[in-house]
Simulated scan of single mutants.
Amino acid sequence: MTSVGIVLATNFFGLILVIGVLWLIALSIRDVSFIDAFWAFGMVLLAWGTAIQVGNEGLRAQLLLGLTTLWGLRLATHLFIRWRRSGEDPRYEKIIAGIMKKRHWGWETTALVSVFLTQAPLLFVTSLPAQIGIFASAASPASQIGVIGWIGVAAALTGIAFESIGDWQLDRFRGDPGNQGKILDTGLWRYTRHPNYFGDALTWWGIWLVAADAALWVAAASVIGPLFLSFTLTKWSGKALLERGMKHTRPGYDAYVARTSGFIPWPPKKHGS
């Protein structure tokens, strides 16, 4: 059987080729914002790339493929539609402009290095539970899924539903002109300021549990994926970056922050508590 190192190396090489094509597309339209949609779709490609190399026999491999595909296609479609509707993301515009000024690079080099070649390894690492889990399943397709694995399935499905509902509620809110400049604090957004980010993290911790249930080495080799995703969503490019901008553009956002959980859903605090 092909070793896990060869499978992962093949996946990474294929990912870099796709990233290169996407960079060429970005050059033609002078916009890199669609990379967000590929972040999700790229993980689907890596999961299926693993299955093509080693097979998808066994319930565990099929669950990992199914959960990753369901999550990735849903999120990629949502983000692609948002990009087509809203145009270039101001965050990327600001990032690229800042790096061009600091490094004295052209737009092409800045986009390649700071966006595409940065995203590729991070995407690859985040999806390790699916890649390594499918590999391990091919090695022992008859292995049974234990309690931990089924908890993972439930967590992943809950995360997908949570993220989907949060995105739908936000789209409806933004689609109402009367909500211009207002804060969404109803529905899931009443219990967490970032239900979409929480759902994202819960999904990948669930996928990790499904994979980890196969063997201890799988758990150890792939836990970097959900750990990194949780870090980036809460401390780096997700929640932290978004909230810095919201505090300056949304009156009353500080009060919303004071009463509403920053990540894990929780009943809002009462005034004065």
Rank of each mutant, 00 (worst) to 15 (best):
L79P: 00
Q53G: 09
E108T: 15
I95R: 10
I52A: 12
A97R: 05
V54C: 08
R82L: 11
M100V: 10
R74V: 12
G55A: 08
H78L: 12
I99D: 06
A97K: 12
T110E: 00
V113I: 15
T109P: 01
G106A: 14
S114K: 01
H78R: 11
L122E: 02
V113P: 08
L70P: 04
H78G: 03
F116M: 09
L67W: 05
V115G: 00
L67N: 03
S86K: 12
L117C: 09
I52D: 04
L117Y: 14
W105T: 12
T50E: 04
L65G: 01
K102Q: 11
M100K: 15
R74G: 14
L123F: 05
G87Q: 02
L73G: 10
E108I: 09
Q119P: 03
W71P: 01
E93K: 14
I81G: 00
F116H: 05
T109H: 10
G58Y: 09
E88P: 15
Q119R: 09
V113W: 15
G72Q: 07
V54G: 03
R82I: 00
E57R: 15
R103F: 08
R103T: 05
I81F: 13
S114C: 15
I96N: 04
N56Q: 10
S86F: 07
A111W: 04
R103K: 13
I96M: 12
K102L: 10
I81Y: 07
W83K: 11
K102D: 12
V54N: 11
S114E: 10
I95N: 09
L117S: 05
R91P: 11
G55P: 07
P121S: 09
G66T: 09
K94N: 15
R103V: 04
L67D: 03
L63H: 06
A97Q: 05
F116V: 01
W107T: 10
H78A: 12
T109G: 05
L63Y: 11
V54L: 11
E108L: 09
L75S: 00
R60P: 01
T118R: 02
W107L: 13
I81W: 08
A120G: 03
T68C: 07
G87H: 04
Q53N: 05
F80E: 03
K101M: 06
G98E: 05
R91S: 01
L73Q: 13
R74P: 11
T50I: 08
L67Q: 06
V113A: 13
M100H: 02
E57N: 08
Q53R: 10
Y92G: 07
G66D: 02
R74E: 08
G66E: 01
